[in-house]
Nucleic acid binder design. Sequence first.
DNA 1: GCAACCTTTGACCGGATGGTAAATATTTTT
DNA 2: AAAAATATTTACCATCCGGTCAAAGGTTGC
Lengths: 215, 215
Amino acid sequence: MANSKIPSRAAGTLKRTRIQMEKEELILEASLEVFSRHGYRGSTLDQIADTAGLSKPNVLYYFRNKDAIHRHLLDRILDNWLEPLRRIDPDGDPIAEIKSYIRRKLELARDYPRESRLFANEVLQGAPRLKEEFDELKQLVDEKVGIIRNWSQTGKLKKFDPYHLIFAIWATTQHYADFDAQVRAVLGQAGKGEGRFEDAARFLDLLFIDGLKSD
Amino acid sequence: MANSKIPSRAAGTLKRTRIQMEKEELILEASLEVFSRHGYRGSTLDQIADTAGLSKPNVLYYFRNKDAIHRHLLDRILDNWLEPLRRIDPDGDPIAEIKSYIRRKLELARDYPRESRLFANEVLQGAPRLKEEFDELKQLVDEKVGIIRNWSQTGKLKKFDPYHLIFAIWATTQHYADFDAQVRAVLGQAGKGEGRFEDAARFLDLLFIDGLKSD
DNA sequence: GCAACCTTTGACCGGATGGTAAATATTTTT
DNA sequence: AAAAATATTTACCATCCGGTCAAAGGTTGC
């Protein structure tokens, strides 16, 4: 009779025990580590269990299956990832808004590189698990593109396609997380500390601000 | 007596038969398709064999193992990928050189997205199979960074860290190949044709040229 | 302290996967 | 056309992997 098998409930929204909360967090942290390094198919439940210091069946006690863990991570990540874009304020100063958007994105890349890589892995493979999330993303981007377009028309910015500005900001900032291995290899000794992020910030400010400000 | 088992020789540099050349090409093409979509671990020999229209053992007759195929592709790709960078001419006009470097990289992203994704997959996962290639890469980048630095000093360009310019160009151009799924999702209908590459080219010209030209 | 519930584990399963062996078919050479 | 060499296939194997099960071990509330 006893409901000896309600593992998935643990990950649901119903009341969870102290142990459930702790272990779920532990598993998600371990999974982020593993998934971000090896991609979905490249990661195994055994790896995740080992990293978390748990047994495989124990991991599956908290999450229905491998996919559920991955989805859970993706959901959590996309939200944080879009936060800086949400913050763009139509009433702010265009240059200042774009500048701080870039800075925030770069900080995310510096402080949450694993999240960036997990996301990148997913998109690279055609984003099979992100179809719905992309709808929300498109809506948000469309809104902000409208704002930027208005800014252009009032003459504070040059005329350009705002979609590609957003792509360029995503690309340049996330590059430092996603292609970290390459960046470090190219910079050599100079790439050791976190200084490259400050150098990047300086360069990107120069590039985007001078590149977009109307004369 | 007969050397009934020299499969790996087929992939070597020794004289190859007509069939060997054809089939190796067929396998590499199929592998590019599969690896670029699913990453190394996400790809199976069966998938590759199916895509190539061969049996799995037949594929392994031409290549030692899965890893050998992958390595072969990586080697070939990196070379083509660096070609535009190699072409940067110290005696050319700085703005024109950078402009055509960007254009060439963007053309590669448009015409060879699978190659870009395969490479991106590898770097994302820490570039385990690219350690040596990165040495060559660093050398080339260092050389071109010197050239750009000289250009800056002669006053034709602003002062900035050339490493980050190169990262920014890589990031923005390859973005259209690597994050294609996202780009298309965001652009919606507008992202259907190849027009996004022309829009991107226009935007990147504006961004980089106006951003870097000294006043 | 004990009953009810929650957590953890070891043993196991079926299918996928990388790879091999040996026999057979095909092509090339003589 | 036969011999020699190359190419392809069928059957197979060992390992890995996602996932299950049932039993044992802990916690918690009364």
